[in-house]
Design a protein around this nucleic acid. Structure first.
Lengths: 225, 225, 225, 225
DNA sequence: CATGAATGAGCATTCATTCAT
DNA sequence: GATGAATGAATGCTCATTCAT
């Protein structure tokens, strides 16, 4: 789950050079013309994309769900593609804001992993739909140059997690008898697939889910005698 | 990953009443008109479905890859749908043959889990494409009545795993301080998502991957002092 | 290039009964709400229509070029159609003012042709965009009853030119060994297509271009010995 | 009216590297699968394009006129664009086959012009629709890289005609008192616009029209005393 | 068994136009 | 006078499927 620049946190200026925002919306809108509508529509779109998949989601369906006609969506967005784009980019921006804070905190490997997992579940809680989309679609979206930032994020993501795990193996925090890449995939998948069943407002808070997941991941499910 | 009847193991007569096989192909006509061709085509289809997703896969693409024209596929199969159907059904049949054997062996909770996980990785090894398809598409395919057996299999799957886990919690094999459903999801996802990155013939054999996964799942990744 | 009534020269009251002007704008309301703005917008529209064709020109494009939003154009004009209408009508009015003056002057065939050609190049110079639009679009616009005046103008145009040519053939001014209709088309096309490459302010003044064209048309390009 | 390679005369191997033909049609068709249908459809398309303009022509319209459904056209062609492409390219290929033969014949300036004009009217006779399309659409089609060959052809066309004219001015065949570019445009337009009114099988054969046009162009329409 | 050609329903997108503010 | 948001009809194109040969 990558991003282009990790230090900046503005919502749109990174990736593709921030050229899109100038295209349509804020013509001379200094005070801004109504970004809420855009957000509403994106929220609806994200939900539908997550439920049915990007390809299987028709623009009509999104429009229906949002209460307008299909064509009207094109007043707000350039294309169906640019909707997922904005959904994913917004999510990744926020994710990396959190991750970067964690990584900059100078914690030990175990604490870093704990913080990353907790942050991940918080993101799943806030951006469930976006995470689900990311899980299902990022692979083939990444094929388009427009979504290059997905690959970029993936790279950074792997570096952060794998690096922390290796650091932990070196200093004796984590077991050395396992293939580190296997551990990485295990932890990564374990955390993110949760988006497919997690429902915000359910039995457990994201922090609680994180706590139990961490407990399983770190200490296993077998009882120690 | 469920099936309708676990005791029978014939390749096609179970599920949804076994009505489909009568549709087109010459049943299992003694000598038969080349059932290998059918399998070849299904293998190609499975690969393409796995790589691009069911919806995104065009019948033409499958045909291209198989070296014939799109229309010609309809000599062998009723529809695109019936292709996934057969792919998934075949996979689930084999999966449940294995699972049922394990479940019938009367092992303890830990050994049962170990055997199930190992069997799962063997299936991933043999049916990588089918497993990947199952992961990505089963949710929305299950909406059609034709794929009722997917839901059915899911139910059986959950019963088997969750039952074993609960048995293990009761008898002190597994930790009691965790939400059992959370453990279930954790183990389930952990195992099956592997299909998304596992490549047969890679660094580790399925048994080796299973061993390491089991080790992580059971004992965690943290070093015990 | 015809018009309905050649004797009147007011800017809008002829054609299709002059019903449109009453539609929206404050007629020619004494002080009026800035008719210059209207002209500005029409000039922009004409330019865009000429450059990209009527159909291919979107209302948005015109608006962009004029610095307002697409919808805002509808304060000034009823429709895209009424923009071309006004552009073409204005041009034809002026063209016929010139032509009618020439035709009323009682010149001989050769002098009439010379004057018509010169007048035509003057119009191309003044209304380049309108002429280009007329060339490209009049055929299919004429299908709509609203643009009946185009057909009407065509008829008058042919009558004027063909009549003059025939008069010249009769009195020995022009060659008699050629199909008169062929001569007509030759002269007509020759003159008007110039709008597609002529750029006001270029190497030659319209009068100079007219002079050379006339020289070619009347005496040919071959050197006489 | 240009072409990429003037020496070869095969119908499709030049331009865009000849990659398109491999795309769809001749799969393994050695003997060829049915190029007649393709030609029929192209003829219909050309007619409609010529009558209503490329943009204004809907794929539905072409299909209607050809007696099939819009989608079915896509079995034969990649896109609406590739239809015009093929129409124009075929025409230009044939045009240049003729032009090149003329230019290679080593005739004097006057005879060359005569031959080019005659050849042009023959092309107008054979490819009326294509010529009309070329006249109306080449300017904006040439914007797409795919239609680069249009610009290329234009360049060659100008070189051939302008060169011949200049040769004629030098050797005293043509008048020296006129702007050569003006002569060029005059002749060029004069000839090609004829496509907008010429109807094959009409009063005059192409050769007869050519003869009269040449007579006007070379010697003018004024009677010499 | 396979091809070639066609169908028809559906999809993303465009665009002239409307209208409340 | 102009904006922002929406409409609705149309457009180019895709695709699973059919079927005569």
């Amino acid at each position: 789950m990558p991003k282009t620049s990790q230090n900046t946190s503005q919502t749109t200026s990174r990736r593709t050079g921030g050229r899109r925002p100038a295209d349509r919306e804020p013509r001379q809108a200094a005070v801004s013309a109504a970004p809420e509508r855009r957000q509403e529509l994106l929220a609806v779109a994200a939900e539908v994309f997550a439920a049915h998949g990007y390809n299987a989601t028709t623009v009509r369906r999104i429009a229906d769900e949002a209460g307008l006609l299909a064509g009207s969506l094109y007043y707000h967005f350039d294309s169906k593609e640019s909707m997922v784009d904005e959904i994913l980019a917004t999510f990744l921006d926020e994710l990396w804001a959190g991750y970067d804070a964690v990584l900059a905190a100078g914690l030990g490997p175990r604490e870093t992993i704990e913080a990353l997992v907790t942050e991940s579940f918080r993101q799943i809680d806030r951006h469930r739909a976006a995470v689900a989309i990311y899980q299902k679609e990022s692979r083939h979206l990444a094929a388009h140059p427009r979504f290059g930032y997905l690959t970029e994020s993936q790279r950074k993501f792997e570096a952060a997690w794998l690096g922390t795990l290796e650091r932990g193996v070196s200093d004796g925090t984590f077991r050395a008898d396992l293939d580190t890449r296997l551990i990485y995939r295990f932890v990564r998948d374990t955390v993110w697939v949760a988006a497919s069943w997690y429902r915000p407002g359910g039995r457990h808070s994201p922090e609680e889910v994180a706590r139990q997941y961490l407990s399983m991941v770190l200490d296993g499910i077998a009882l120690r005698e």
